[in-house]
Amino acid sequence: MSTVPAAALDYLGTHRVMTLATHGSDGPWAAAVFYVSDGATLYFLSSPTSRHCRNISENPHVAATIHEDYADWPQIQGIQAEGVVREISGDDEKHARVLYGDKYPVVGKIAQAPAAIVKALAKVRWYRFEPQRMVFIDNASGFGHRDEIDCRS
């Protein structure tokens, strides 16, 4: 197993939206979700009835990207990843909630959250994305620079 470069971990920690690519009985689907990172592990919440979560329940192997909308090619950075998503509960969910609340205070301070947020959070499940392979694209280190990372232990 190779170590995830600090630049890739920093990138994960400073961004918020991951696009998940899933596949289920209705075919492929992509959906953007807010996430929080703990090293290379990513946590997110979503409705179990959403198409991407239904797909995950059928086939937990997914692909994901994290990137910005860059206008300047030499500045492009981003993450491409593949791995497995699992619904979590118990201590894993508590851990995810704390991390998520630190990054997104409206979720962490549920007593102070707007009623619509409280209502929505009552319907979600928590998920963990464990990447098996990642690619950190970093044109700032040279055009087309890619760090291929094996995340399997």
Rank of each mutant, 00 (worst) to 15 (best):
M1D: 09
S2Y: 06
S2K: 12
T3Q: 13
T3H: 08
P5D: 06
A8I: 00
D10K: 11
L12V: 01
R16W: 01
R16E: 07
M18H: 02
M18W: 01
L20W: 05
T22N: 02
H23T: 13
H23Q: 14
D26N: 08
D26C: 00
D26Q: 13
G27Y: 07
G27N: 03
P28F: 12
W29M: 01
A31W: 05
T41L: 14
Y43H: 12
F44D: 01
S46E: 03
P48G: 04
S50P: 08
R51D: 14
H52L: 00
C53E: 05
R54T: 12
R54D: 03
S57Q: 14
N59W: 02
P60Q: 10
V62L: 02
A63M: 09
A64N: 04
A64V: 11
T65G: 06
I66R: 01
H67M: 12
D69T: 06
D69P: 00
A71H: 12
D72F: 08
D72C: 04
Q75S: 12
I76M: 06
I76C: 03
G78C: 07
Q80F: 02
E82A: 07
V85P: 01
R86F: 06
E87I: 10
I88N: 07
D92S: 12
E93N: 04
K94Q: 15
A96L: 11
L99E: 07
L99Y: 10
G101C: 08
D102I: 09
P105F: 06
A111P: 00
Q112R: 13
A115Y: 11
V118R: 14
K119G: 08
A122I: 06
K123H: 11
V124E: 01
R125K: 15
R125F: 05
W126C: 01
R128K: 15
E130T: 15
Q132E: 15
R133M: 10
I137R: 08
A140F: 02
S141K: 15
S141Q: 15
G142R: 03
F143K: 06
H145F: 08
H145Y: 10
E148R: 13
I149E: 01
I149K: 03
I149N: 00
D150C: 13
R152E: 12
